[in-house]
């Protein structure tokens, strides 16, 4: 009984605090990572559709063919050398590539830089453990418009796009969704 009263009191205090924060205009000031699992309204969503084909040569001269990756879970990451949040994510993607390779993960990076030279330099420095190819406006449009970075898609073993993460995203959130797809055989 006492516990229930205590809980009610806390609940009432929390509600009251939220009211005060709203009144003071402070709630909108709390930074929230812009995460979305589906494309927001207005953007052509490719979630739950077959991933548009990618058939390009990566920076090491190897072919990246999305069709040949059927049966694997693909983490497709659009990034650029000048995108600070992208550079935070990439070492984690390299770690995941090593950690989850045996479960069928393949990370693919697509650079949206205008030129390949700075990309080569940075990839060498970061020692990325997955293929990285250059992207372009056409590929961006096929993927619903890459109009802000980073942008990451999770593609299931059947080649269907399942998740979309736009902007700075909590890596634990991406990893959790990734593990769910990897566990689904």
């Amino acid at each position: 009984m006492r516990a229930a009263t205590k809980a009610r009191r806390w609940h009432s205090r929390c509600v009251w605090l939220v009211r005060v924060l709203l009144f003071a205009g402070l709630l909108p000031a709390i930074p929230v990572a812009p995460v979305c699992f589906a494309a927001p309204p207005g953007v052509r969503s490719i979630v739950d559709k077959h991933a548009p084909q990618i058939n390009r040569v990566d920076l090491d001269g190897h072919r990246v063919d999305l069709k040949s990756l059927h049966g694997k879970v693909v983490l497709l990451n659009f990034w650029a050398t000048w995108c600070a949040p992208c550079l935070i994510e990439m070492p984690a993607f390299s770690t995941w590539q090593r950690q989850y390779a045996s479960q069928g993960l393949q990370v693919v990076g697509i650079s949206m830089d205008d030129d390949a030279a700075p990309v080569r330099q940075l990839v060498a420095r970061l020692n990325a453990k997955y293929p990285i190819a250059m992207g372009d406006a056409k590929l961006g449009e096929q993927y619903g418009g890459v109009m802000g970075l980073p942008l990451t898609y999770l593609i299931d073993r059947n080649g269907v796009v399942r998740m979309r993460f736009q902007g700075e995203t909590d890596l634990k959130t991406i990893e959790r969704q990734l593990q769910t797809l990897l566990n689904h055989r």
Binding site: P40, G42, A137, L149
Partner: peptide
């Protein structure tokens, strides 16, 4: 605030390609 896609394109403001 976030990116060109969400803060301009998705608002329906005029764009060109």
């Amino acid at each position: 605030a976030n990116n060109f896609g969400s803060d301009w394109v998705e608002k329906g403001y005029p764009v060109a390609r």
